[in-house]
Computed example of a mutant assay.
Amino acid sequence: MDEHDADSEREAQIKGPSAGGDDPALDPYEINFLPEFRSGRGPRAPFVNGSGVVIGDHMYESPQSPLSSWTEDTDPAVMAGSEWVHPFKDVGFLTSENRDYFERGIAPESGIFTHADKDAAYEAGNDGASGNKP
């Protein structure tokens, strides 16, 4: 085994199983969802969202995408919501927290993604400073 092969093997051991585990039928961005997380998720195939962008085809650049015409005046909320995330094929499923939850049923630790003293929620129409409506 040469040095490159040894490095690749060590990296694979650190990262754990690849996306999709041992199931070659799964997309590279899919994980092996537990049965309780498979039903009612939405389409497995790519779909076109309300902005005319194909979601789930791994082609992240398209003329219809706000990313293709982003300016400093673009409100990031235009790309928020479930219509921008594929229910089965999303790079976010590959995180260890999501894999633990969706493949193994291990709930995430409470409070690890919260700010006790800040309201990070976005609401259109807020003044942006206090979180209170103007």
Rank of each mutant, 00 (worst) to 15 (best):
G125I: 04
A116S: 13
V53C: 14
S39Q: 14
G50C: 07
G111A: 10
G56H: 06
G105I: 06
S130N: 04
Q13V: 09
G92K: 02
F88Y: 15
E83D: 15
Y29L: 14
T95G: 03
N32D: 15
V91T: 12
G42T: 05
R38F: 04
F93Q: 01
E123F: 09
R44P: 01
N132R: 14
D117L: 13
E123W: 01
P87Q: 12
L67K: 11
G56Q: 09
D22P: 01
V53H: 04
D73N: 13
S65N: 15
R99M: 09
N132D: 13
Y122C: 08
H58V: 05
A129L: 14
N98P: 04
K133Q: 09
G92S: 11
S69T: 13
V85A: 02
S18N: 03
S130V: 00
G40D: 08
D7P: 00
P35K: 01
G16T: 07
E61C: 06
E11H: 06
K118V: 13
A25R: 15
P66R: 07
F33T: 01
P108K: 11
I31V: 14
V48F: 04
G131F: 09
D23Q: 03
V53R: 03
D90W: 02
A120P: 01
E109W: 01
G50L: 09
T114W: 00
D5L: 07
P108D: 02
P87K: 04
G128E: 05
A129N: 10
G125T: 06
D117I: 07
M59N: 12
Y101R: 02
A121V: 07
T74K: 10
T95D: 05
P66N: 11
E109C: 08
E30N: 05
F102E: 03
I31Y: 03
R44K: 15
S96R: 15
D27P: 01
P35C: 06
S69Q: 11
T74I: 07
T95Q: 02
A6Q: 12
Y29G: 00
Y60C: 07
Q64S: 14
F113E: 03
G56A: 09
S130I: 04
